[in-house]
Nucleic acid binder design. Structure first.
Lengths: 352, 352
DNA sequence: CTTTTTTGCACAATCGATGGTGCAATAACT
DNA sequence: AGTTATTGCACCATCGATTGTGCAAAAAAG
């Protein structure tokens, strides 16, 4: 603080200033000094000097020596999405509170990129890795395994490492039931009136589709395959699917289940091209929560996945060290239309 | 790849395997081998061995020696917001395409936290830093300065380093004009019918408020102070401001300008407590773009800030090395209601 | 067949911290 | 006073790369 020197102070500088050896300085500054039986007075002197000179340990050097970096990684498919960005937010908070440094990266749902990004993180000797929504969790697992890196899967399960995911089946059941009941308030609902858009060949989509179909069959008696319209996690493809349906039927289905908020963005693209009065009576369910998505001009039921709880569980599992490769389910909650939930931002103090 | 050894290979391992010295191996693997006049055959042998053993440089060691890490930091106020998360998304892409590793962190709009987080990043020897939306850019600047870290401000300007920000004044003018014109379609608008909610004591808010007031005065002839309601960047506080207005007037203002999407979330919280029919005729302008925010059940004009361009400019400035501490303006665009823009996600390939 | 030049590489110091080991000086016991 | 225990710290190897320097061997020049 007081000091104006250009270069960053090292333990060697403090060693000279204090008259102690570098190893003593190191011990004092990394907290191991009691164990090393350093005199209290010596420690205080060194700490005083360190403060005066704004000493900060070089974490690359420390990491090199100790082969730990204090970095904890979170691998996301994308940032630009409320589900994942709020996961990033909770992740950061939890990592920081453990005295480590969060490293959030995205890999664009590309299996090869996922592995490469993780290789890079490993080159920085990260200590732990959360693999969220990976397209190929087991591929990433192998990379981690080889490097001895502790890791868990979040959101999409793997078979080789512990996984913490939403209870997609139950969530989809809740959501499907909610939109059916709501749609039936406007009159009887035929199986052809209820569609599902979005999702692809991943575990979450499968489970959600399974939940959707089970409830639909139970409540509406039938479940034609045509009502399932996978589009990938792409707004553009989803918009195309809505457009195609619209061209064929002159309207949208009375009610539909949208696999994620990313797919819901596809619906927005479709809506932008059509006057909204035309679709004033649709009922939508979206497997994801977005505060604005909840207030669209038609009823939108949403599912809020508890990413904060998943991260917490993830740390618990990593701390417990080498848990079995089982899948832990976290319950999501059904969010009725027009609901503004509080989120991680509310934890922030914000002065006016 | 082929290799099954437990530990990561180092240049020393490859040195033994190839019969070359560690320095030769190093030179081959970091690309400086031509400069060092290493025989082509030697280089190829070493590269082959490196591939076979899945060699990856230890970046902490490299960073320690060269005092560069290949890490580029982006300091955000928060993740959980479309503006900043899409900034993170473009940032990542650009950093990766430059062969570096992105490090995105948030500091919760807390000046002390901002400085500490940056100190931590510096301890990892990051090479460059983008300071986005910092509460105290100049405080952060000083920390960077002392460490000789190249940096630029994004979104909120500082006085000591180059800054790249939205043209908030022009953006606010466009937005204000758009909502006034739209509101006047429903009949004459009095100055008391047009409010501004959100924002606080930062440069962006000041400029937006200035733009708002200038246009309002020009078009509506007056601009009572009461119509400016700063709430900070907090959904909860913003909701309270709407609630207070509603209690006093039995309705919301006919038209209003919301300072950011975070404040717009405050409007959602208010709306959740009231039947939306009551507010079917409000006209809203929001300084930020959110794809779902654009489709609320009343007209929402939005401003899309070009975060991608800001990042690009930022790199240009950093590459030009030590630009003057001037402020560069990036033009935002006005987004009419019910518009679904494509975003960084559309760059992703997504197989069905 | 020398002398000079070029080629190809090895050596060793260094970045800044960590942690095992060993050795004085002091304190505690006979 | 002589012996043993304890305290307090210094020394040094080490983590894995980078890079300036130097020196043989090979090639080119004379």
């Amino acid at each position: 603080m007081t000091d104006i020197s250009k270069k960053k102070a090292t333990i060697y500088d403090l060693s000279i200033l204090s008259g102690a050896s570098p190893s003593t300085v190191s011990a004092v500054l990394n907290g191991s000094w009691r164990k090393r039986r350093i005199k209290e007075a010596t420690a205080q002197l060194i700490q005083k000097l360190a403060n005066e000179h704004g000493y900060k340990a070089n974490l690359q050097a420390r990491g090199l020596r100790s082969s730990r970096s204090g970095l904890v990684g979170l691998l996301l498919p994308v940032h630009d999405n409320r589900y994942f960005s709020s996961m990033a937010q909770s992740f950061e908070a939890q990592v920081r509170s453990r005295g480590q440094c969060p490293l959030v990266v995205s890999a664009c749902r590309d299996p090869e990129e996922e592995r490469q990004v993780v290789e890079t993180l490993i080159s920085y000797s990260i200590d732990e890795l959360f693999i969220a929504g990976a397209t190929d969790p087991d591929g990433v697992h192998k990379v981690c395994e080889k490097a001895g890196l502790k890791h868990v899967n979040i959101d999409l399960p793997g078979t080789l490492a512990p996984s913490i995911i939403s209870d997609n089946y139950e969530g989809a059941r809740m959501l499907t039931q909610a939109i059916i009941e709501r749609a039936q308030e406007d009159g009887p609902l035929s199986p052809d009136d209820l569609y599902l858009f979005g999702g692809r060949n991943d575990h979450a989509s499968h489970e959600r589709i399974r939940g959707f179909r089970d409830v639909k069959r139970a409540l509406l008696g039938a479940d034609p395959d045509i009502c399932i319209q996978p589009t990938g996690y792409s707004p553009a493809m989803t918009a195309r699917a809505f457009e195609a349906f619209y061209e064929g039927h002159g309207k949208l289905p009375r009610a539909f289940f949208v696999n994620s908020s990313i797919n819901l963005e596809g619906l927005m693209r479709f809506l932008a091209l059509h006057p909204h009065e035309t679709f004033a009576d649709i009922i939508v369910g979206c497997y994801d929560y977005d505060p604005f998505g909840s207030f669209l001009p038609f009823p939108v039921f949403m599912i809020r996945q508890d990413s904060e709880a998943m991260i917490t569980r993830g740390f618990a599992i990593l701390d417990a060290d080498r848990g079995p490769a089982i899948t832990h389910l976290v319950q999501p909650t059904l969010v009725p239309p027009r609901t503004a939930l509080i989120g991680p931002l509310d934890a922030l103090k914000d002065i006016e």
